[in-house]
Amino acid sequence: MILEGLLARAVQMSTPLLLGALGEVMVERTGVMNMAIEGIFLLGAWAGFTGAYITGSLSAGFLCAMAAGVVVGVLYGWITVFLKQHQIVTGVALNILAAGIGIFFYRVLFGVPLLPLTVEPLRPLAVPFLSAIPVLGPALFRQNILTYLAWGAMPLGWWVLFRTRAGLVLRSTGANPEAVDAAGISVERVRFGAVLAASALSGLAGAFYSIGYLGLFSNDMIGGRGWIAFALCFLGNWNPLGALLGAVVFGIADAAAITLQTSGIRMVPNEFLIALPYILTIAATLARKRFNVPASLGTAYTKEEK
């Protein structure tokens, strides 16, 4: 029973990591790091909760979360792609802004309630027959809609990136923006578009924590998971399927922490389990030997001028 619960939870907990990492892979392939990802997760969680609480509709909540992601993406993309400012500095600034702004508007809207406000989170949808398979069935086929979508999005993302015209443009932009420019495509537009798409995905990922899973919002609910999605892009070698593999590992670690905490088993200190995903991030980053880093990653593209 514990194993079944653990697996189901691992699949569930990998959902936001998948969405965030997929967006990050796409945008980094164009040469831009979405350094605002942690802040977008948090604002997505807040906007998703607020939208769902006010309208009473989870779908509206998820749309609000994506919109919040896009708003941050517009700001980040405008500053880094068009104004060509430093990506890390800009990202850090936006993350600090996001950390304050979510809770600020939460209090403006709802005051400081004695008990946290809640909404009904997403419900699992069992796939007929398949969910009856022992152990694996409930893990893979008794999940909520967002989890199915996230898992489906990874192979789809791989296909887009490596098998379509748009994917070729994305990859070329990161590997040699001059080539894209010479082919008559605007490097800035490609990058800005990718930032917006990645930000929407990250906003959606953040909303998973508030309305996809817990049904409430608190300002520390992301707790660095945006950065894990960010690291998964590196670990997955800028490949959606690689990121999927990494997300499963982190999903298991996250689920193990929660499962063991709630089951009362005291094999290892709780703090260790909570820290486990972060320890794994560091270890896995160190363990990788070769990276397919996009050659222009982190640098703004300026057309050749005299």
Binding site: L168, S172, A175, N176, E178, A179, D181, A182, N292, A295
Partner: peptide
């Protein structure tokens, strides 16, 4: 161009 505009990894 004098400096090629190719993507070397492709």
């Amino acid at each position: 161009h004098q400096h090629f505009t190719l993507v070397p990894v492709h």
